[in-house]
Amino acid sequence: MIRYIAFILFMMVLFLGGALFGINQASEGVIQTRGYTSDSLQDALEIKQQDSDAYEVTVMGVPLEQEGLEEKMTQYKDQATHSSVKVAQVLEKGVNTVYNVVIDSMAALVEPLF
C-alpha cells in the first residue's frame, strides 16, 4: 500500500512539474513570437476611470469605445433582421408547434389509463 501511495505521489509531482515546465515554455514562446523582451510592454487589459460613469478601456493597446445600451439594442435589432435569423425563428415556431401537438396527443391517449 505504501508503494502505491508513493507511486501516486511521484506521478503527481511529475505531472505538476511538467505543467509548470510547459507554462514556462509557453511564456518563452510568446516572448520569442513578439521578437523582443521589454519591461514596458502594455498590459492586456487596462481600465481607467475618467468620470463617475465613463471608463477608458484599452485591450492590447487598442482603445475601445463605450456605447450606450440604446445603441447596442439598435445594433442588435438591425443584426436580428437578417433573413437567416427570420428563417430560424419560423422553423423554431414550427418545431415548437409540432412538438406541443405530439405531446398533447400522447397525453390525451395516456390520460384515460390513469
Rank of each mutant, 00 (worst) to 15 (best):
M12S: 08
L16G: 06
L113S: 12
S83V: 03
G61F: 03
S40L: 11
V95K: 05
H82L: 12
G35F: 03
P63A: 02
F7C: 03
T33M: 09
K93L: 01
T33P: 00
Q25E: 08
L41T: 08
Q25H: 06
T97A: 08
V62Q: 15
L9N: 13
G68W: 02
Q42F: 01
S84Q: 06
T81A: 14
L69C: 05
T81Y: 13
Y4G: 04
E111Q: 08
M60D: 15
L45T: 08
P63C: 03
H82D: 15
F21S: 08
A19L: 13
K77T: 11
D51K: 03
V90T: 04
L113D: 07
V101L: 07
N100S: 02
F10Y: 07
H82V: 11
L45G: 07
L20G: 15
D43S: 13
M60W: 12
F114R: 11
Y4T: 14
V102Q: 07
L45K: 02
Q42V: 05
I31Y: 01
I2E: 11
A108E: 09
A108G: 05
A19Q: 14
L16T: 13
V62W: 07
Q32F: 04
Q79P: 00
T37K: 04
M1F: 01
P63H: 02
K72T: 12
I47K: 01
H82K: 09
L64K: 15
T81K: 10
M106P: 00
I103R: 12
Y76D: 13
K86A: 07
E46F: 00
A19F: 15
A88R: 06
N100P: 00
N24P: 00
Q50F: 08
K86L: 06
M73E: 15
T37Q: 09
G35W: 04
L91V: 07
I8Q: 05
Y76A: 15
N24I: 01
L45D: 09
Q32D: 10
V13Y: 10
Q42H: 07
V102I: 15
A88V: 03
A107R: 09
Q25T: 04
V87H: 08
Q42C: 02
E46L: 09
Y36N: 09
V98M: 03
S105F: 06
Y55E: 05
V102K: 05
